[in-house]
C-alpha cells in the first residue's frame, strides 16, 4: 500500500478509542483504495487524501461527539463556582497571611509583606482553579447533572428581582439612622468619656479610655461621620448608583476606615487599668486592634467592590421603579 495512505490512516485512528482502531483502520483502507484507480500515481493519492480532510477532523467525525473538558451544559455553573471559590480562597488567604504578619513579626519590610501576601493569594487561587476544574471535568466526563434546580414555571415566577443600579430607599434610611446614632454616641463619648467603662460591684468604675487623650481625635471622627451622613443623603436623593456617587461613597468609606485606624492606634487613649482588668498586655491589645483593622478594611473593600460592580455592570432600574427590565 502507498506509504502516504498508511500514514494518513495511522494518524487518523490514533485519535480513536483503542477498541475501534483496528476496524476503522481496515475499513478506511478499503474505502480509500476503492476511491483510487489501480496502481495510482502519487498525485492521485495526494488528491484523494486531501479530499478526505485532515486526519484529526476525520477522527472527530468517527467519534461523533466533540471532545471537551467541560461541556456547554456544565460551563455556566463551572464559571459561577469558579468565581465564588476563587474569591473566597483569595480573601481567606489574604486574611490569614496578614494576620500571621501581625501575630509573629518577622522583620519583613512592608513591600516584602505585600509580595508574600500576593504570592500566597496567587498560589491559593491557582489551587482553587485547579481543583474546581478537575471536579467539573470529572462531573462532565461521568455526565453528572449539575443544573442547580429543576426548571419549572412556579420557579420562574418566584425568582428574585434582578438587582439593578437602584438604591433602595429603606437602605438609605437605615444608613442615615445608623450614622445619626453613631454621631450621638461620639458626642456622648466626647462629653462623658468616663461613663463608658467597666462597672464592678465594688469600687469605682474603670473607664475604657483616657478622656483627655481621646477627646481631640473624636472631633475628627465626628467630621468623617458627618461626611458619611451627607453621602447617605445624596444616595437617598439620587436613588441610583452613578460614577460620581460611587466616587463619593468609596472615598467616604475609606476615609472612615482609615480614621478608625488612626484613632485606634493612638495607644495613649486606652486606659491601662481597663487593659489590666482584661488581663491584656498593651502588645496583645495592639495585635487585636491591628487584626480588627485588617478585617474592617477587607469588608470595606469588598463592599466598595460590590458597589463598583453595581455601578458599572448592572442595568438601570425601570422607570416605574418596580420591575427591572432586562
Amino acid at each position: 500500500m502507498h506509504k502516504l495512505i498508511s500514514r494518513y490512516i495511522a494518524e487518523t485512528v490514533r485519535h480513536l478509542k483503542a477498541e475501534e482502531r483496528v476496524e476503522v483502520e481496515k475499513e478506511l483502507e478499503a474505502n480509500i483504495l476503492d476511491m483510487l484507480p489501480e496502481n495510482p500515481s502519487d498525485n492521485e493519492v495526494e488528491q484523494t487524501l486531501l479530499s478526505m480532510g485532515s486526519p484529526s477532523s476525520l477522527a472527530a467525525k468517527y467519534r461523533g461527539s466533540e471532545r471537551h473538558l467541560i461541556g456547554p451544559a456544565t460551563y455556566d455553573t463551572y464559571v459561577m463556582v469558579l468565581k465564588i471559590v476563587t474569591l473566597v480562597v483569595s480573601l481567606v488567604t489574604l486574611v490569614f497571611t496578614t494576620l500571621s504578619f501581625f501575630l509573629s513579626p518577622s522583620g519583613l519590610s512592608i513591600f516584602e509583606m505585600v509580595a508574600k501576601a500576593l504570592a500566597s493569594i496567587f498560589s491559593g487561587a491557582s489551587g482553587a482553579f485547579l481543583w474546581v476544574t478537575i471536579t467539573f471535568a470529572l462531573l462532565d466526563r461521568y455526565q453528572v447533572k449539575t443544573d442547580i434546580k429543576e426548571w419549572n414555571l412556579p420557579e420562574l415566577r418566584s425568582l428574585e428581582e434582578i438587582p439593578t443600579k437602584e438604591i433602595k430607599k429603606k437602605d438609605s434610611i437605615a444608613d442615615l439612622v445608623g450614622l445619626s446614632l453613631f454621631f450621638l454616641f461620639l458626642g456622648f463619648l466626647y462629653m462623658n468619656s468616663d461613663l463608658l467603662g467597666i462597672y464592678t460591684k465594688d469600687g469605682e468604675p474603670i473607664p475604657l479610655f483616657i478622656g483627655t487623650s481621646l477627646r481631640p481625635y473624636l472631633i475628627g471622627w465626628m467630621v468623617t461621620t458627618t461626611i458619611a451622613f451627607f453621602v447617605a443623603m445624596l444616595k437617598m436623593v439620587r436613588r441610583r448608583w452613578t460614577k460620581p456617587l460611587l466616587g463619593f461613597s468609596a472615598t467616604s468609606d475609606l476615609l472612615g476606615v482609615f480614621y478608625f485606624f488612626f484613632i485606634a492606634t493612638r495607644w495613649q487613649i486606652y486606659n491601662p487599668d481597663a487593659l489590666l482588668f482584661f488581663n491584656l498586655a498593651i502588645e496583645q491589645w495592639q495585635i487585636i486592634i491591628k487584626a480588627a483593622a485588617v478585617v474592617l478594611l477587607l469588608l470595606t473593600l469588598f463592599s466598595i467592590g460590590e458597589d463598583t460592580y453595581t455601578t458599572l455592570k448592572r442595568t438601570e432600574p425601570d422607570e416605574s421603579g418596580k420591575v427591572p427590565v432586562r
Binding site: 478506511l28 476525520l58 467525525k61 468517527y62
Partner: peptide, 8 residues
C-alpha cells in the same frame, strides 16, 4: 463527501 459518509 467521503469523509462524512464513512464515519456516518
Amino acid at each position: 463527501e467521503a469523509n462524512t459518509l464513512y464515519p456516518m
